[in-house]
Design a protein around this nucleic acid. Structure first.
Lengths: 135, 135
DNA sequence: CTTATTGCAAAACGTTTGCAGGTTT
DNA sequence: AAACCTGCAAACGTTTTGCAATAAG
């Protein structure tokens, strides 16, 4: 893999944006520092960076892929209210038990939680109980 | 939700095809029994059946959605060699520990294993060790 | 000088949607 | 009759691709 200004910039963005940006978000941010950059190049570079193991792809059902600078294994919570994706650590022993219980030759595992993040869960609670919120 | 021949047929197909068919596969099979059926209708009905809880959607990263007649919670293995999706039971205690450890208000969880299914893992082994396979 | 990488635009892909007409209740 | 559902085709959002031009080694 040859050096390229564009790929370096894409990697920088993924490492700078810690909120699991989409390709489009990475593109919009990178554009500020490299006018003329094209979205296709961002996609191509994200693919090679994922393949090279420098970046992780975070697939979210029914949503565009996100990208993660954290390389160690963890799970994600997709909040259906605010759209935010947050990292969730998992008990190491639970992971080991999961991995050990699998037949075949597993190379990867995608674990995604769907629901409300902590702050949306709180807000939602407040909305559901307006009386309590007014106190 | 009103009765419709097309929706009934889509449901039948999901229940008949136990290999996690895609919308396209369901469409192709249903077409035999209902010529003139349209793909859009299959998508619409799959969506309403999922919403009604009669069918489960199985999202596979980078692949079209699959649909599952099994309603109880389980995980899936996507074989990157043959493309097959197989059900994988999970230890109930492990699931409970996973769910309990989550913050926010989780409503669903998608757990997908990526790798080789048992038969592809075997074949792959045979290819990698041709001498052993010849014995 | 060779070949990877780029920007651009077009296409691919899976899926949704608007509409006019047909079905169910 | 009112609502729902259909087929059709067009549109959608995300991602990939073919191409000629540019940049890296």
């Amino acid at each position: 893999m040859r050096y390229s200004k564009q790929r370096e910039l894409v990697l920088q963005q993924v490492e700078a944006l810690h909120d699991h940006p989409t390709a489009e978000e990475i593109y919009q941010n990178a554009l500020k520092e490299c006018p003329g950059l094209s979205l296709g190049t961002v996609y191509r570079n994200l693919n090679s960076l994922v393949e090279a193991g420098r970046v992780r792809r975070v697939p979210i059902p029914g949503q565009p892929d996100r990208f993660d600078h954290t390389l160690s294994w963890h799970s994600h919570l997709y909040c259906t209210r605010c759209g935010q994706v947050t990292d969730l650590a998992l008990d190491a022993e639970v992971i080991r038990r999961l991995l050990e219980s699998q037949p075949g030759r597993v190379t990867d595992c995608v674990l995604t939680w769907i629901g409300l993040c902590e702050s949306c869960a709180q807000e939602d609670e407040a909305i559901k109980t307006p009386v309590a919120a007014a106190l």
